[in-house]
Nucleic acid binder design. Structure first.
Ligand SMILES: [Zn+2]
Ligand SMILES: [Zn+2]
Ligand SMILES: [Zn+2]
Ligand SMILES: [Zn+2]
Lengths: 159, 159
DNA sequence: AATCTAGTTGAGACTTAGTCTCAAGAAAGA
DNA sequence: TCTTTCTTGAGACTAAGTCTCAACTAGATT
């Protein structure tokens, strides 16, 4: 079954009104792996130019609150969204040079997290675990940095 | 030795011009555990109201590039900064209700991360690992929206 | 089908956080 | 001192997102 249908059923089951705008937004959103709010606004408008920016943001907020999408901050630019509905949990490894994103799973880390929150008497609700580095390709190319340079370790700057 | 002196020596040793504004900004910054750029602007201006917003942002950028401060996105509101110069690496656990931030260390996770990046042929440069949940107090309180918790002064936390 | 009503929308003003430009000022070096 | 280079203040500007409200609509009720 198409992913957007599952999402729509989920929303329906939660008593959330399924408007034409929301259907369009959900259908465009599931077509991406990661996207920004403004990218989604633009995309949705190529299909229906009358959809207001506010509607896209409100719908994204709705999807986020209901757990259908996750919000990622990959440090560079505005937050990225990802439709994680009915998708296994994973964390991210990103190349700071070319932007490649790898999704990884590490049950050992998930387990240790539980120990950490218990240690402090917390109830864990969510988490993010992001690794930043250079992929094999980018490691061997000219280390010239882009204008919006990522933070480098002190040793690298001195060198 | 005062922490701001160490930071200033570090900047000096790197040939970075130590202006009066930068000294003031560094001294105010080290007095916090976590702070936002706008909070720092306000704070600095209570001492010298003529310091321009741009100067604070530029200096924060400088401190970030040189590894003196780290930038955190705790999801709610603008990014938080933290002076991590000469401070042991740690990750963060945050209460989404009251904004309390706990710093934790987990060598086991640090080790697993290395295995992950190796698995994909990456070179690890940095990472963030953030756990979100409810602290013991907030767990038993009527759920409300995540607040913009006030930043805490180091002295207040010690007290 | 017609009606009802609470939830949703478009439009655009507004806000917040941050960037950029540039003339003037200040630091370090000769 | 003079010179060069870097830094600053001021404020215009931008990007991203929020808010308001009259008009509209989905879904429920009749
Ligand atoms: Zn995880
Ligand atoms: Zn790469
Ligand atoms: Zn860590
Ligand atoms: Zn709390």
């Amino acid at each position: 079954m198409k992913r957007f249908v599952e999402v729509e059923q989920f929303l329906k089951a939660r008593g959330i009104r399924l408007t034409g705008e929301r259907q369009l937004i959900v259908r465009r959103a599931v077509s991406y792996l990661h996207f920004t709010a403004e990218e989604l606004v633009k995309d949705v408008r190529t299909i229906d130019p009358t959809v207001a920016r506010g509607t896209v943001y409100r719908t994204l907020g709705l999807l986020h609150r209901t757990g259908v999408v996750e919000k990622h901050d990959f440090r560079y630019g505005p937050p990225n969204y990802e439709v994680t509905f009915a998708k296994a949990h994973h964390d991210h490894l990103m190349c700071i040079q070319c932007g490649e994103i790898i999704e990884f799973q590490e049950p050992r880390v998930e387990h240790i997290q539980e120990q950490v929150v218990k240690r402090y008497g917390y109830q864990l609700l969510s988490h993010t675990h992001k690794l930043y580095g250079l992929c094999q390709k980018c490691r061997h190319v000219n280390p010239k940095r882009a204008s919006k340079a990522p933070m480098l370790h002190v040793e690298e700057i001195v060198a």
